[in-house]
Nucleic acid binder design. Structure first.
Ligand code: FES
Ligand code: FES
Lengths: 133, 133
DNA sequence: CTAACTGCTACTAAAATAGTATCAGTTAGG
DNA sequence: CCTAACTGATACTATTTTAGTAGCAGTTAG
């Protein structure tokens, strides 16, 4: 029942660190050593965060990354969305033999319901909430 | 956000089929073809179900498996427990840099809370509930 | 006796996750 | 105007987890 992958977890940590340093650019190297995340891995994650406009970057010396959104408006489920293939509804695995009428399949319904529940719960956790110590 | 693995899913299906055939032994071969589950894979799963007393077996010709519990008393989370390494709490991945005092870490708390929530939700779904069409 | 079964052990294959290497292009600052 | 410190982008490799397979020994109905 691993709800978050390491990529998601790291992404959240990165956003949290950037939140704590809102007004300056932090380099990948800096974040890497601050949070003990492998450098190349963090580069990968930062690129994704950049592509989805969670952060902005500055190239060259003294460059790095800076938060591009209000941490109150990013939730853990927003991050999950991009790092764990958006809250995919688990494909129906029962077959006709068990549920002749798919629309009445109880398990499928229940799983979907629980997944939505999980998403909603994660949606309630903003980065801002995580960083206010 | 794959909540159930195939093994868990198959296990549930097997229990559901056995529930629908409470009073006779079903062979692995039969269940396999009824539910389109690979034969050797189902054997593996049945052995685990047997070890945990979800089912009883009969060896030899006309042998097979039969439910050993009241389907009202088995929940999806009971099955998850044995097939997905019991609802493990995801290991804390943030480090001291972010939360100096681990006992106050919000993310960790939130994840644990959500995992418990998921477990509770699955606990509410009994095999009996799934099979009553 | 034997075909149809389970019990058990040990594999192999495929997919997902985690992490690495490398090179081209940008820029602050000497 | 050079260069060290950066990012942009692509393309790997390694590790772990999940999915599925093979095969033999032992049991039993018919
Ligand atoms: S499990 Fe898919 S329709 Fe029932
Ligand atoms: S994430 Fe582990 S203590 Fe905060």
């Amino acid at each position: 029942m691993k709800l978050l992958t390491k990529k998601t977890d790291y992404a959240i940590r990165i956003l949290a660190v950037l939140t704590k340093n809102k007004n300056r650019f932090l380099s990948a190297r800096e974040i890497s050593s601050l949070q003990n995340i492998p450098y190349q891995f963090i580069r990968q994650i930062l690129r994704i965060l950049l592509q989805h406009n969670f952060v902005v970057s500055k190239e060259g010396g003294k460059g790095g990354f800076k938060l591009n959104v209000d941490p109150k408006n990013i939730s853990v489920s927003d991050v999950i969305q991009y790092f764990q293939g958006n809250i995919m509804l688990s494909k129906c695995m029962f077959r006709k033999q068990l549920c002749h009428n798919r629309s009445t399949c109880i398990l499928k319904k229940e799983i979907n319901r629980i997944e939505e529940l999980v998403e909603k719960e994660f949606a309630r956790i903003s980065i801002a909430k995580l960083t206010k110590t």
